[in-house]
Design a binder for these strands. Sequence first.
DNA 1: CTCTAGCACTCCCGCTACGCGAGTGCCAAA
DNA 2: TTTGGCACTCGCGTAGCGGGAGTGCTAGAG
Lengths: 356, 356
Amino acid sequence: MPQKPDVREDELDSRAREVLREVVLQHVATGEAVSSRSLARGGRFHLSPASLRNAMADLEDLGYLQHPHTSSGRVPTDRGYRFFIDHLMQSRRLSQQERDVIDGQVAHASEVDEVMHLASRVLSRLSDQVGVVFMPTLHRLTMRSIDFILVAEGKVMCIIVGTNGMVVNKIVETRQGFTRDELEKISRYISGEYAGLALDTIRRRLIQLTAEERSQVDQAMHKALALGIGAVEDLMPMEHELFVEGTASILNKPDFANAGVIRKTFLALQEKEKLVEILNSCLNEDGLQILVGSESDFTHLHNFSLVARRYGSESAPLGMVGILGPMRMEYARVAPLVDYLGRALSRKIEEEEQHD
Amino acid sequence: MPQKPDVREDELDSRAREVLREVVLQHVATGEAVSSRSLARGGRFHLSPASLRNAMADLEDLGYLQHPHTSSGRVPTDRGYRFFIDHLMQSRRLSQQERDVIDGQVAHASEVDEVMHLASRVLSRLSDQVGVVFMPTLHRLTMRSIDFILVAEGKVMCIIVGTNGMVVNKIVETRQGFTRDELEKISRYISGEYAGLALDTIRRRLIQLTAEERSQVDQAMHKALALGIGAVEDLMPMEHELFVEGTASILNKPDFANAGVIRKTFLALQEKEKLVEILNSCLNEDGLQILVGSESDFTHLHNFSLVARRYGSESAPLGMVGILGPMRMEYARVAPLVDYLGRALSRKIEEEEQHD
DNA sequence: CTCTAGCACTCCCGCTACGCGAGTGCCAAA
DNA sequence: TTTGGCACTCGCGTAGCGGGAGTGCTAGAG
């Protein structure tokens, strides 16, 4: 877990907090640096620009604000945003429509790929940022049933249904020939014997079994075990761990006015390993998480923030959903979105489990 | 089919052709406008800059070249590229390594999604451009076998294997409850009865059957037919018709120096309908196809070219593979790449068919 | 002690002018 | 038909010049 800077709540008096808050809101809204005048014009303070200037200067000394040039307004720092998020932000409630969209999408999905696609897309669309969905490897997935279907000579499709209702499938190549009947028997055998266990446990047991009873088991059994091992091993690495959707949508933001920034950002988004690492490190934390700017040491993505949340049952987290956008984003709007989607997914998964 | 401009081969004498050719090559290599001096320096002509200027001026009058400003070198027009591609280009042979990469990837793929992903990725990587792979709807896919697997109450996974070895699968929701045995019977029945027919034919026949024998057939049969129809209909629209991969790779090209161009390009790439339309219109043509700049009326993608080729057996084309890049691209390198991948895919599909 | 008005100072930004360099077009001579 | 020469045209980078916005500081008012 990347550490957050030490931001004590009591460091700022009530005026300073109000000013910081207003600066963040205004800067997020306009994208411009905020001047003392424009703050005064805002009408929320009955103070002259000069007084506000003093307050802002103090905030700057404390590291909550900075100004790019001598003669331009102020902009929040990472630390400023952090304080805002922790102590000043009032999350907006989701509109009925937004909730409907999320619920609707979640209700449909059943196959893994579909779920991840839908989730990242819905986040990206509703937030107008980049949606990311991450699923750790399937090692921990507990199996409800497994099926083998012959699709061609030497090719068997393997379908695993998890106890959480998740469905994954993959075609495995096998040198040995199988008949449909054989495959059915194998499906039944493994389903019956190993239901409720995690994939990596199943794999271990199968291998154990092969070794132990090397010569005792008949040849048919051998073939069955080999197929089972192959299938589970093929499925576990799961290449598409990370879905990133809506990269184009950030192009419309004024923050991406020049080509260099765009280039860097896209290249960074392409390198998924780092992002996976960060998301993975958040997997143990409960509740909504917000990483601001440099807090996630995603070096290529300066002034980006990540708003993410774990999903899956509490005991066995399945992955993370979240959005990625410029540090200057509407946290109050985005945060509840991510939170709601994470909850909706988790709820669905729990239902599936009980339904079993 | 977008029409190509009328470019007669005999319009240019041998000097003009050589000059045009050299201009294209140099411009593609450097990205700069080509001046008469740099042509002369190239050493391929034993002529002074002044003579080359005359030749270039003639080419400009005929519409093969243009110059952006009064005082800068010349750049090929769409028409110039067209002539170059049709009459002047010498395709480079693929390196052994490139062929190995393509063959290796093609050998693996079996499931539809996988094939399309791999193909677009390999094209994008080898050409350093945007790879596109397009598959028209599955209406014409001829079925070898169909399988129904129960994955949860009310959810049945349907797997269709085509005579060309292609495998597609989808989970269909059904209100009626099915037992595993019932599903197996249905699989067998439909596989036996309809093997070798196209999906849309199968769909028609199933519907016909339901209507005809409305009251005569027993209830089990009814359920079976309904499930079959549902599955086929669910599968046919196939949302992921178009795969676009490697959009980030074009960011490195100098052609994308300013943000406006990038923005436009990415937005255009996002609108897949238009691209689908263009690829669809090329589906009837045989062999490698190159559309230069405005020839494909992809209005948002000015000065982009499309190099594409049909794949699948001759009688039943399956789709298009191709790459999309700036008009200023190395056609001699890209063209054989696309061609080879298309052939490799087609060959594989034909093998699968005979193997049946 | 706090707030505010005033003022000097800094720095960004857009505009214009200028000169250089690259390239062309044309003409006249070889 | 080719070539050298020369005038002309632009694009581009640089420098210089206000104007404007915003700050920091100080002194005076409440």
